[in-house]
Simulated assay, not measured.
Amino acid sequence: MNGIEIAGRYYRDEVAPQLWDRRHAAALLGAGSEVLGYDDDLGSRVLGARLVRELMRLAFLVERRWAPYGKWFGRAFGELESAAELKPLLDGALGAPGWRERERMVAGAATVLARRTNGLMLAGPVDPAPRQFYERDITVLGAERFTVALAEEITDPVLRGLVDRLGLRHGHIPRLPGTVDQAVDSTDALAIPERFRKAAPLLGIDLHVVGREAV
């Protein structure tokens, strides 16, 4: 087994499970109309576009493909196996006339990715159906359920130690570090290792501790 294959299996089985953490973002789509009592359609559109981007990034992750930077992002997404199923939903979310339709499209795309995540068999199957967000009139995937299921399968001692050190939210949801490009959106920073490594503390990662445990 060559080094690239070993690295790929490590990423698939140990690193990828740390990235499925999208608990509250989808619930913000209807924040203006449903909670505050006024229509903030522009704000909902901006949040919807952000969610579309995150769902596209998850599609790359599920298919074990690296997402390129912005200039090539959309074109590379179109080459993914899941693009044919996801693109109509994502287009619908971006062009929806109101937040309720936007919510429906986002939830549909998230369900597609949830089913495909189950298909990877990295953890036991999780119900991919959307559900109500607490008692509010909002529909979300409930992605924290995937976070819990996937994190439980991390066995590598270095990554297991990192996840355990970051602790839990709400008593049962692991605080996963994710990746640096979830916290930093600058090509100038992400293209230079010396720069993006300095962002590690933003994710709760102590590179000195991780480095010592990896030796």
Rank of each mutant, 00 (worst) to 15 (best):
R50S: 14
M105G: 04
A183R: 00
V140W: 08
L166D: 03
R197H: 06
T147H: 05
A183M: 01
L159N: 12
F146P: 05
A214G: 14
A96H: 05
G30N: 09
P97K: 09
G119D: 10
P128A: 05
P157V: 13
S82D: 12
Y11R: 13
S186K: 01
F77Q: 11
V215S: 09
A110Y: 14
D181T: 01
L150F: 08
F146Y: 11
S33T: 10
A109E: 05
H170G: 11
L36I: 10
G204R: 05
L190Q: 08
F73N: 06
T187L: 12
L80Q: 02
L166S: 03
L19S: 07
S82T: 14
E194C: 01
A83R: 03
G178D: 01
R115G: 00
R22C: 08
P193E: 03
G70M: 06
P193H: 06
P177N: 12
R115S: 01
A49K: 13
L58N: 13
D137S: 15
V15C: 12
E54W: 06
E63Q: 07
M1V: 10
G74P: 00
L94V: 06
Y69T: 14
L19D: 09
G108L: 11
L55Y: 06
L29V: 04
D39Q: 08
L47G: 13
D188T: 10
E152N: 04
I4H: 05
A27T: 10
G95A: 15
A109C: 07
L36W: 09
A143D: 10
